[in-house]
Simulated scan of single mutants.
Amino acid sequence: MKKLWFLGLGLSLLLVGCSDAGSEEGKKEESAKSSEENTDAAGELMDFYLNLTTTVNGTDIDLNGYEAAVGGETPPTGDELAKLEEAAAVSAEESAEAVENTEIPSGLDDYKKDIEEFKATLAESYTLKAEALKAEGEADLSAAEEKMIEAENQIKAILDKAGLVSSSLVNDLNG
């Protein structure tokens, strides 16, 4: 009877040991899979960000030129200023449209809501610039600049959440 009891106890311990090893192996596989998914999402997020900034930099050239000219030592006046403002307004509208049309990759579903908010804020910044440039009198871009700072803070939070080094959106778009 004692032999049967020891045999049963031995088999029980063996089964418990095997099941623990299997669960640890499963945990390691899950951890590796989760880490790989995070790396993939971080890569897709960087691709999204770089694609967005490259696209916008292709459309906001006249806007950046206007801002540089107005902030220069001898700002333009009269007809020259009017032409620069008109071109900058069109550039700002195209930039807002480019931001809105930038698609969010399917691998970023965990960040989708935050990215959509970021895109809306950034597009609003460009829309505010366009409206200010079209308005009569001197263009006041302060509200648009505040929106740009808000968008920069949003993308920094998204990049930080993904474990990426945050970048300066303002520098990336105006640099």
Rank of each mutant, 00 (worst) to 15 (best):
A120W: 04
S12Q: 04
L45R: 01
N171P: 00
Q154K: 15
A41I: 04
G175P: 09
A135C: 12
A130R: 05
L11P: 00
A123G: 12
S35R: 04
A120C: 04
T121N: 01
S12F: 15
E25D: 13
V90A: 06
M1K: 12
N38W: 07
E37R: 15
L122Q: 06
A69R: 09
Y111D: 10
L169N: 03
M1I: 10
V56A: 05
A92F: 00
S167N: 14
K3W: 14
A96S: 10
G163Y: 06
S106Y: 09
L14Y: 06
G8V: 12
E86T: 07
L52M: 13
D47S: 09
V99S: 01
S35F: 07
E94P: 00
I149D: 09
A151S: 06
S91G: 01
E86A: 15
L108Y: 11
N51G: 10
E117Y: 03
A162W: 02
G107K: 03
Y66E: 01
M46H: 06
G175C: 08
L141R: 06
V56N: 05
Y111Q: 10
T39K: 14
S12D: 03
E80D: 08
G17V: 10
I158W: 00
L133A: 08
I155T: 08
G10F: 13
A96L: 03
K134V: 11
D40R: 08
K112L: 12
A82H: 03
E85T: 06
K112Y: 10
N51R: 07
L122P: 01
A139H: 00
K119W: 03
D110M: 09
T54K: 11
L173Y: 01
L45D: 04
D172Y: 02
A41E: 11
A82M: 12
I158R: 00
V16S: 12
V90N: 03
P75R: 06
E117C: 00
E150G: 00
L81I: 09
S19K: 05
E103K: 13
I149E: 09
D109A: 14
F6C: 10
K2N: 12
E103F: 14
A143S: 15
E103S: 15
K112C: 02
E136M: 10
A98V: 04
E30I: 14
E116I: 01
